[in-house]
Write a protein that binds this DNA or RNA. Structure first.
Lengths: 96, 96
DNA sequence: GACTATCTTACCCAAAAAGATAAAATGGAT
DNA sequence: ATCCATTTTATCTTTTTGGGTAAGATAGTC
């Protein structure tokens, strides 16, 4: 099952990749040859129809010359902002 | 084909997950139930024997209550540090 | 209109992720 | 040495990624 959050994460990351790629004047074909990832696969990732592996993301980030974290960092703003100290006592509910 | 850089990225990310998980006093079983990812799968990821999907990473990051980018940010230090302006003229070599 | 470049979609295929489960390590504590 | 919790490894099945290719869409230009 894939949650809304995850869909949003994929969506944003795809947009991010496309923005950077366009800003560098690269076509999908060119990025495909730079990364070794096929253009159709890149298209699926940019349009959030595919859930790429970490190394796939890393290859794209490398070709675009930015750290992987930059491709997904908006998620950082959306996530819970580490308020206070959570290092003790995560609430496991019925699970512990 | 999987490069040395990618292996290093996976290795570091696995270590990072394990560090955070331990610092929060969580076992693999507990994290498995929090994420919906099986404990064996988590073990493979932490020991860099598996190349997880982005949403898999996101679920782990969520459970550990930190942004995904924090799980892979060392790669940022290792990558080329965006010196100067690379937005024009990526070298495509024979590919253009 | 036709032509071109770019991107998307739809097939196949192989390889890999991920869940389930069970069986081995591993390590601590008594 | 024994017990126990935790982690690793192995096997199996299902699902998904990702390459290849070809076929559609979608501009934009002439």
């Amino acid at each position: 099952m894939i949650t809304d959050n995850e869909r949003q994460l994929l969506h944003h990351m795809g947009q991010r990749i496309r923005e950077v790629r366009n800003s560098q004047g690269l076509t999908l074909d060119q990025l495909a040859r730079l990364t070794g990832i096929s253009a159709p696969a890149l298209s699926l990732i940019e349009t959030a129809k595919r859930d790429p592996r970490l190394t796939t993301l890393a290859r794209i980030a490398d070709a675009l010359r930015l750290p992987v974290s930059r491709l997904i960092e908006a998620e950082a703003a959306a996530s819970t902002t580490l308020s206070g100290d959570a290092s003790q006592g995560y609430d496991l509910g019925d699970y512990q």
